[in-house]
Design a binder for these strands. Structure first.
Length: 283
DNA sequence: AGAACATCCTGCTAGC
DNA sequence: TGCTAGCAGGATGTTC
């Protein structure tokens, strides 16, 4: 499932192929992919012929930015992905199932594939409002992340619910939330108002460490058919997962990894390595 | 305020 | 082996 590391992988790979180019065509074959607009023609009209100046990302939101400040926004949600072909090698008949949107430059064809159709592509003049929410989990310093945690220091929310809330930290999803809690050695169901300032700092540093490493390894591909990058390659970060999707397996400490629900999300953690803050202070 | 749940959707899988 | 019910999840909206 695309989270910040997977979206950043697409951004990083799209940038050199798109910047300086113009969109020559944009077509959609599934109305849900461009559901914010009356028709995909509206999107086409807004982007075709315009020159691309950057490819940006905020949290899980991708934006192809044009020289008149038009933004072509892409959110992959659960099952969205992008693939690229050389324009001379592109054959529409070879498109995978659920290829819903196709757009081109003079050199490349980009295909948006999305089996569950939760993903979407839309156009805005200037940044989309969602990109203004929260601070980006990758491009923020641990001090900035600590400050956001401090703002919520009286909150009775659980740590994992906070990490998943895009209004505070943008980009973290279910996989990295579990790994961040493990790295911080704090239970995902610990309440924010039980964290000391020192523990907030530990969480903030864990966010940076996990997200940066996940980006270095081009994201996580949990199953054979899950995340693939722009070139169809799987990511490698799943090899370094400590707890996520490992229920019943042994933690590095030897204890069994548990599976519970936190914030109505499936959550994996180690009861031995991860403690409630009150107990952490006693150790 | 915050948790829980339904919603959107299809592919996978656990369980008959 | 083959079928189906249930689960999975990001964001949003509703309910408790």
């Amino acid at each position: 499932m695309p989270e910040i590391a997977e979206v950043e992988t697409f951004r990083y790979q799209l940038e050199p192929l798109l910047v300086g180019q113009s969109i020559t065509s944009f077509t959609s074959s599934h109305p849900r992919s461009t559901r914010r607009h009356d028709s995909s023609q509206e999107v086409s009209n807004a982007v075709v012929g315009k020159s691309i100046i950057s490819v940006n990302r905020h949290g899980k939101y991708l934006a192809i930015v044009f020289d008149d400040d038009t933004h072509l926004n892409i959110h992959l949600r659960m099952s969205g992905r992008l693939i690229v072909s050389d324009i001379n090698e592109y054959d529409e008949l070879n498109n995978p199932k659920h290829s819903h949107v196709v757009f081109s430059t003079d050199k490349h064809v980009f295909v948006f594939i999305d089996p569950r159709t939760f993903g979407e592509i839309w156009v805005t003049s200037g940044v989309t409002k969602e990109s203004l929410k929260g601070i980006d989990a990758l491009n923020s310093t641990s001090d900035e992340i600590t400050d956001v945690l401090k703002e919520c220091s009286k909150s009775k929310r659980m740590l994992k619910a906070f990490l998943l809330d895009q209004n505070f930290l943008s980009g973290i999803g279910n996989i990295y939330a579990d790994e961040i809690c493990f790295e911080a050695k704090i239970r995902p169901d610990a309440l924010l108002n039980s964290l000391s300032e020192k523990e907030m700092k530990v969480v903030a540093v864990a966010v940076g460490k996990i997200i940066n490493r996940a980006c270095e390894l081009r994201g996580s591909s949990l199953r054979d058919e899950s995340f693939r990058d722009l070139y169809g390659e799987i990511g490698s970060y799943q090899k370094e997962h400590q707890v996520h999707a490992k229920a019943g397996e042994k933690c590095i400490c030897g204890s069994e990894i548990l599976k519970i629900k936190v914030a109505s999300r499936t959550t994996y953690f180690c009861e031995n390595c991860q403690k409630f803050p009150e107990r952490l202070k006693k150790l």
